[in-house]
């Protein structure tokens, strides 16, 4: 019973943090907004109605360190004139053994991405550059920040109506149209459960720590339409929910309202988190493990972060 209460508080915290921050920065989710079709023209640009939700793996009540951090996961959502940009990063937990907080690296990476977008150091058609530059900015910081992270950044070019993405590691995104997955990122792994990752290691560990160049990030481009749903998540989501389960959630999203998007995002996170702690559940992760000759049962307890965006016609409300 107590765990349920704790659980509920965690979730509430996540929802509040997601909603607040969203209004503050991207301003694309004002509840009062409704599309006025009388002004619709064919060439109207698109924008994203975005909701963020997440839960930390830890069942104990941990204080939320900063906005949009869920355990070792971090994410951001930012807008500029031509583009809406969202991204997630998943810190590699192994750094805890060296006494390093694994959440700091992805947090800084995402904060820097957000600043780069807001300051205009960003071209909507090359999200890979924003990852490269963000990584370079981390190296240019006086603080020697150690850690590793996967990263996935997706940008909607409003005028071109194209979705540009860059993905490094096992976080990912999918585009859902009329209840079907029409486009998705490819997972990048060195071997099972060891994703590609950006890292900064102390000199003694250099060479023994995996460190992939931001240049190897997988880039894609995809034409999107009004009504498409973009789901960005860390492996905590995709390892615990199959495509069918995810699509089942997405089908409940009937309109463009930000509350609806937020509700579906919360539902996804809650479901993935619950299944992650279910020892009897045959999770996608357990299936992948079996395919690779490992024995693993049940869900995969992990931090879960979801950014759910609905592609919407017209200018975002200001």
């Amino acid at each position: 019973m107590q765990s349920l209460v704790v659980y509920g508080r965690l979730l509430a915290r996540a929802v509040v943090s997601g909603l607040n921050s969203e209004v503050a920065v991207s301003q694309s989710s004002q509840p009062s907004w409704t599309p006025s079709c009388s002004q619709c023209t064919y060439s109207r640009p698109l924008h994203l109605v975005t909701a963020i939700a997440g839960l930390s793996k830890s069942r104990a009540l941990v204080p939320v360190k900063s906005k949009w951090s869920f355990g070792d996961d971090s994410c951001f959502s930012a807008s500029q004139k031509l583009a809406d940009v969202v991204g997630v990063a998943d810190g590699v937990g192994g750094w805890r053994e060296y006494g390093i907080d694994p959440s700091l690296f992805p947090r800084s990476l995402m904060d820097t991405c957000e600043r780069l977008v807001q300051r205009g150091h960003f071209s909507p058609s090359s999200p890979k550059d924003v990852i490269c530059q963000s990584y370079q900015e981390l190296l240019d910081n006086k603080t020697h920040l150690l850690g590793s992270s996967t990263v996935c950044v997706v940008a909607l070019h409003r005028e071109e109506k194209k979705l540009y993405s860059a993905n490094l590691g096992d976080s990912g995104f999918m585009v859902i149209r009329s209840g079907e997955v029409v486009h998705r990122s490819e997972e990048q792994q060195h071997y099972f459960n060891t994703p590609f990752q950006l890292s900064v290691a102390p000199p003694v560990l250099q060479g023994s720590v995996l460190n992939d160049s931001p240049q190897v990030a997988d880039s894609t481009m995809f034409d999107v339409l009004d009504g498409d749903v973009i789901l960005l998540g860390t492996d905590g989501l995709f390892d615990n929910l199959s495509d069918d389960m995810i699509l089942h959630h997405i089908r409940r999203l009937k309109d463009h309202k930000s509350e609806s998007v937020q509700n579906v995002a919360n539902g996804l996170v809650k479901d993935a988190h619950r299944k992650g702690f279910d020892p009897d559940y045959n999770s996608p992760f357990a299936q992948h493990a079996a395919d690779n000759g490992f024995h693993f049962e049940g869900g995969k307890p992990d931090d879960v972060t979801v950014i759910l965006s609905k592609v919407t016609e017209g200018q975002p409300p200001t």
């Binding site: 600043r115 780069l116 300051r119 150091h121 370079q136 900015e137 240019d140 910081n141 006086k142």
Partner: peptide, 16 residues
């Protein structure tokens, strides 16, 4: 203090 291509510790941070 910052490098020319960067946005850490650079003069342009004074804007906005």
């Amino acid at each position: 203090y910052g490098s020319e291509a960067s946005m850490s510790y650079t003069a342009s941070n004074i804007t906005g």
